[in-house]
Nucleic acid binder design. Structure first.
Lengths: 105, 105
DNA sequence: CGTGTAAGGAATTCTGACACG
DNA sequence: CGTGTAAGGAATTCTGACACG
C-alpha cells in the first residue's frame, strides 16, 4: 500500500507525453475534461504521477474505442463511489469485529 | 523487488532540486564527480529517478559531515562490490541447493 | 574542492484562440 | 467533440567559464 513513488506528482508533461505516446495537447485536454488532476509547480508547470500515466493510458484506450470523455468521467466517478462504499463496509466490519472480540475468543 | 517506479528516470532537475533542497549546480556537480547517473532526453535534459533523489540526500549528508566527493565515490564503489559478492554467493548457494535437491528430501 | 553566478542559446511549458469536422 | 497548430511570453535547462577559498 505504500505507493509513495507511484502517487507522487513529479513528472513534467513532456516526459508524460513520451511515456504515454499522447500529445501534450491531448493530455491537457483530458485535464480540462476532469479525467486527470496534475499538480503545479510555483510557475504553473504541470506535474504528473506514475498513477496519472496509467490513468492516461486507460483513457487513451477508451477514446480509441469511441468512448467520449464525458462517459469516461462517469465511469471513473462510479468506480470511486463503489470503492468508497467498499471501504466503508470494511471499516464497519472491522469495528464490529473489535466490538465482539471477547466473545469471539 | 519490482522497483519499476523507484528506478525509472523521469524527473527533471528543477523538481529534483525542490525535492532535495539541493541547488541544480550541486546536483550537476555530483554527476561530474560520478556519484549519480541521470539519463537524458533527446535534447539533453537530465532525468532522475526516486532512487537518485535518495542517493542525493545521502550525498548531501556526507558532504555536510565534511566528506569529500572522492571519498563518497569510494564508499559507493565498495558497497557495490560487496553487494555483487553477496549476490554471487547466494546464486551459488541456490545452485548447490538445486543440485542436491533429491538428497535433501 | 565545492559552489555561486552571469552569459547566451535552445527547448519547454503555458494560455487563449482559430480551425476542422 | 477531440485535437492540431501558430502566437507570444515566461521560465527551464544546458554548457563552459570566472570567482572565491
Amino acid at each position: 500500500m505504500s505507493e509513495s513513488y507511484k502517487d507522487k506528482k513529479v513528472i513534467t508533461i513532456g516526459i508524460v507525453s513520451e511515456l504515454t505516446g499522447l500529445s501534450p495537447r491531448k493530455i491537457r485536454y483530458y485535464e480540462e475534461r476532469k479525467l486527470i488532476f496534475p499538480e503545479r509547480t510555483k510557475q504553473g508547470t504541470r506535474k504528473y504521477s506514475f498513477s496519472d500515466i496509467e490513468t492516461l493510458m486507460e483513457i487513451a484506450d477508451k477514446i480509441e474505442d469511441g468512448v467520449q470523455t464525458f462517459e469516461i468521467r462517469k465511469e471513473m466517478l462510479k468506480k470511486e463511489r463503489d470503492k468508497m462504499l467498499e471501504d466503508k463496509k470494511k471499516m464497519i466490519q472491522g469495528q464490529l469485529n473489535a466490538h465482539f472480540k471477547i466473545r469471539k475468543q
